[in-house]
Simulated scan of single mutants.
Amino acid sequence: MFTELCNKIFDQSIADYHVHNSVDQPILNPYEKTAIEHLLYLKNWIDTVQWHLEDIIRDPLIDPVKALEIKRWIDRSNQERTDVVEYIDSYFLEKYKEVAPLPDATLNTESPAWAIDRLSILALKIYHMREEATRPDATEEHRAACQRKLGILLEQRKDLGSAITLLLEDISKGRKYMKVYKQMKMYNDPSLNPVLYKGQ
């Protein structure tokens, strides 16, 4: 199933990141640029770096100049993340372009790639919750609470994977159709953000 491929690549990306565990390390994507695996690895790598940037920026003792630098990094990361999600949806649009929707075909509440985006974030939650559930310096109560949360996250991943699989099957059979809206983020656009265009 496609979601099994996603989970495998997301876990690989997270493990690769944690070899050095640094937001400054370069990505070494092992997949060909033309392959969907390349996009999936890139998507999760962006999420993983941003996860750790969000941790860093919450340090109460962080230097304000450093915090602003990281905030702007996070803004760029959000745009990159959105772009990659749209590339993944383009892959599905191309894959299913010959499928004629049935007369009663319906639109899903989100596109396949935005559901896969949630699967990528879940992989990160599972990795870090598992870390907390096995942390040697934590209390037994803490580890037990995190183990319970880990069980819920694993169930969520299974349920979300099943839902994505069903959505892709429905699209392939014409029971659902894709309609992708560009996110049209405004805060990075100098022509749409009043703080930016009024300062010009």
Score class of each variant (00 low, 15 high):
residue 19 V to S: 09
residue 96 Y to K: 07
residue 124 L to T: 01
residue 118 R to C: 03
residue 12 Q to G: 04
residue 103 P to S: 08
residue 176 K to S: 14
residue 106 T to Q: 12
residue 178 M to N: 11
residue 181 Y to N: 14
residue 7 N to Q: 12
residue 144 A to I: 12
residue 175 R to E: 05
residue 117 D to P: 00
residue 7 N to V: 06
residue 119 L to S: 05
residue 168 L to C: 07
residue 73 W to I: 06
residue 136 P to T: 11
residue 63 D to P: 08
residue 153 L to M: 13
residue 91 Y to V: 12
residue 30 P to T: 03
residue 24 D to F: 14
residue 66 K to N: 07
residue 77 S to L: 15
residue 82 T to R: 04
residue 70 I to T: 05
residue 119 L to P: 01
residue 100 A to M: 10
residue 113 A to W: 00
residue 131 E to P: 02
residue 32 E to K: 07
residue 9 I to P: 00
residue 117 D to R: 09
residue 37 E to G: 01
residue 138 A to T: 03
residue 129 M to P: 00
residue 177 Y to H: 08
residue 54 E to K: 13
residue 36 I to Y: 02
residue 144 A to T: 12
residue 176 K to Y: 04
residue 38 H to R: 03
residue 58 R to G: 07
residue 161 G to A: 11
residue 188 N to M: 12
residue 115 A to F: 01
residue 165 T to L: 13
residue 65 V to H: 05
residue 145 A to E: 11
residue 90 S to W: 10
residue 112 P to G: 12
residue 11 D to F: 06
residue 185 K to Y: 12
residue 40 L to K: 01
residue 198 K to A: 12
residue 144 A to M: 10
residue 101 P to E: 09
residue 20 H to A: 15
residue 27 I to R: 05
residue 88 I to W: 03
residue 34 T to K: 11
residue 192 L to K: 15
residue 110 E to K: 15
residue 37 E to D: 13
residue 113 A to F: 05
residue 145 A to N: 12
residue 84 V to T: 09
residue 2 F to W: 12
residue 99 V to A: 05
residue 72 R to D: 15
residue 27 I to D: 01
